[in-house]
Nucleic acid binder design. Structure first.
Lengths: 228, 228
DNA sequence: GGCCCCGTTCACCTGATTGTAACATTATAT
DNA sequence: ATATAATGTTACAATCAGGTGAACGGGGCC
């Protein structure tokens, strides 16, 4: 399974070079030459990662970035920004919007592929049960059994931790109460109980500023927000 | 794994030609020459799709179609109708229940194989409940419990979401109110059938620009439009 | 044993959801 | 064209799902 990479740039030359290098590195490149097409391509192709030029016709890179982040279906796709000027990049990657990394033009393709590799590895790690999860101000270290909000450790009980960890790992996807009872509590035959609700309430209380990550999907279950 | 295709026609010549073309296209054809045998063959062979001539000895094509649709075990098998006259096909596909597509005789085998391919692809997608459905401007992600029109998330209640998801998964085929009550609401709920109508209305309202996908089939039920 | 922590259950409350009924409109049959 | 059946619309009250706070109870620890 070759990961699909969407490359968005308005210069055909850049697309060609990148396409070649990506194929060489074992990826399947897909292309778009403006912001509108980029958004369409993300929806159609569901790439594993997006390489995004900052300067684009139609809808510029920043805007594309924002739109992708706002939508739960695409919020977790890593974005690598390309730009000519390095100066303003800290702002872009850090706070304003959710780019995950950036490379300044002119760049060495080797460098770019390395960054892509790193981002993909990081994204994949979210599924690895032993990994250290970092979502916005939230830090979850399953190995050490420690959860933090903005660096401040939370005092969670074992069940609370397991619940939070599981929801965060499956972020974006709704978990029914039955599923949670099975996976967190280990109940074989899910019973009718409000236990899950009570635990969610305590979790929310302890999470404080980060409580909004725990979303209720009425009639279905709970979901850890997909957007950081 | 070659998909098995049941071809039902009373003319041996037609069977032979179709059989050859289907094998050529990578399918495994199975044959029946009348309605009774067709029903038996569906039961015994469990084909992935049925090509059904309208005019048949014993039990005619429409009747076979209806019988297959009534039984939950066979209801989801795609049916492609063959007929000599095009005029009455709208009625058959649209109203009388259940055929998924039709081709008028004489037909080009290439055309037929293309239609088969399309129907099989659609059926496969509908079978996987975790799959992300994308139909025109509509996006339905069951795992995340998110439905969007042109990227804008809809706020659907649990029942509304289930109803939309089910109709979209069975797009192109009419669902009777009873069937919807069974599959969306659950068997044991003996509720007024007008409940479905009310929910359809609410769905249409929320779908806005995409409301036209929900078609009313007077006297029968509702259908999610087959064409994107 | 007694105490404390933690998980579970209960009761109550609120707002959203939903089934139904009543009325309006449209399609079909006579 | 008119009658009739089917569906669209609207409104509303009952119900339900989930939030919240508190009580209960068991097991480990002293």
């Amino acid at each position: 399974m070759k990961p699909k990479i969407l490359v968005v740039d308005d210069e055909p030359d850049a697309l060609e070079v990148l396409g070649f290098k990506l194929r060489e590195a074992g990826y399947t490149p897909v292309f778009a030459k403006d912001g509108t097409r980029a958004l369409a391509a993300v929806r159609d192709e569901r790439p594993a990662l997006v390489v995004l030029d900052l300067m684009l016709p139609e809808v510029d890179g920043l805007e594309v970035c924002k739109i992708l982040r706002r939508d739960p279906a695409t919020a977790s796709i890593p974005i690598l920004m390309l730009t000519a000027r390095a100066a303003e990049m800290d702002r872009i990657v850090g706070l304003e919007l959710g780019a995950d990394d950036y490379v300044t033009k002119p760049f060495s393709p080797r460098e770019l592929v390395l960054r892509i590799k790193k981002l993909l590895a990081r994204a994949q790690k979210a599924d690895d049960p032993s990994a250290h999860l970092r979502i916005g101000p939230l830090d979850i270290d399953a190995a050490r059994h420690v959860a933090q909000v903005k660096g401040v450790p939370l005092t969670l009980t074992a069940t609370e931790f397991k619940l939070l960890d599981l929801l965060a790992r499956r972020r974006g996807r709704v978990q029914t109460r039955d599923r949670l009872l099975q996976d967190v509590w280990g109940y074989e035959n899910p019973i009718d109980t409000r236990t899950v609700d009570t635990h969610m309430r305590r979790l929310r209380e302890k999470l404080g500023a980060a409580a909004h990550y725990l979303e209720t999907v009425r009639g279905v279950g709970y979901r850890f927000s997909a957007t950081p």
